[in-house]
């Protein structure tokens, strides 16, 4: 029963994602411009040890996509509440945790797909992996696991937010700092020491570092620590989201 509820809710998220081709394309715009304009624009003036700035940025932008997509797909719960569909799930004879898990899994799969599309674009405009292509197989679970945590974060907020206008606030004061502090756009070692401490509190850092390890063999923290950090983050976020969902309406 629980399993069927989870897959059903996850499948709906995937179906809605696939059905809205315009949205897929639209959300690829920002990562594309970051990669091409920021990447190539700063390539000449920003020397990066062991690679170039464009290649360095690829993992950062993929991480950005995971963060943005997971967060904002999960926040759709707020509009589902407004349009009434949330009630259909809340009164069904299923556990609230199943709703959280179903949504997190569905959103994380689509976030992963979106990040893979960004990597495809990167390859098209000249990105070259220095590591084995087999690493791409490792990359998928890494992306997925990181997305689970951010989906959980989005769901936790969505359980409390009544007004979609709050999204702007969340973006400016949570999502953007998480993105910028993660080392997605600058190398960690170039950050001042006071900032370095904060950087390692940012869960996105572990995804960025893990991806760079897989794609370029470059990273400040060991791969297993990245994985561990992400799993801990997932557990905390899903737990919080599940607890908050039990209290809805």
């Amino acid at each position: 029963m629980g399993f069927l509820a989870i897959t059903t809710i996850a499948w709906r998220e995937i179906l809605l994602y696939l059905r809205n081709k315009g949205r897929i394309l639209a959300t690829l715009g920002a990562p594309f411009f970051y990669l091409v304009i920021l990447g190539f624009g700063l390539d000449a003036i920003l020397p990066i040890q062991g690679t170039n700035y464009f290649s360095f940025l690829v993992a950062g932008i993929m991480s950005m996509v995971i963060l943005f997509h997971s967060m904002f797909s999960s926040l759709s719960v707020v509009t589902e509440r407004q349009f009434g569909f949330l009630k259909e799930m809340l009164v069904a004879p299923i556990r609230r945790t199943d709703i959280v898990l179903g949504k997190a899994i569905g959103n994380s799969l689509t976030a992963t797909a979106q990040a893979v599309l960004v990597l495809g674009i990167a390859f098209l405009v000249g990105f070259q992996m220095t590591q084995s292509f087999l690493n791409l197989l490792w990359m998928l679970p890494l992306l997925f696991l990181a997305a689970i945590g951010f989906s959980g974060m989005g769901l936790a907020f969505a359980s409390r937010i009544k007004d979609p206008q709050t999204f702007q606030f969340l973006f400016n004061f949570l999502v953007l700092p998480l993105f910028l502090l993660s080392g997605a756009v600058f190398p960690l070692e170039s950050a001042p020491s006071w900032l370095q401490g904060i950087v390692f509190l940012d869960p996105l850092t572990y995804l960025v570092e893990g991806l760079r390890a897989l794609l370029l063999g470059l990273s400040q923290i060991p791969f297993w620590i990245s994985i561990l950090g992400i799993i801990v983050f997932d557990a905390i976020m899903i737990l919080i989201a599940a607890l908050l969902f039990r209290k809805i309406e």
Partner: peptide, 25 residues
């Protein structure tokens, strides 16, 4: 049947019903 609509407008009629059928086991 709620006072306010609680259907997913972006799904088909059948998909809405399938969703419900599965949640109710």
């Amino acid at each position: 049947v709620f006072q306010d609509p609680s259907l997913d407008f972006d799904l088909t009629a059948k998909e809405n019903l399938e969703f419900h059928a599965k949640l109710y086991g």
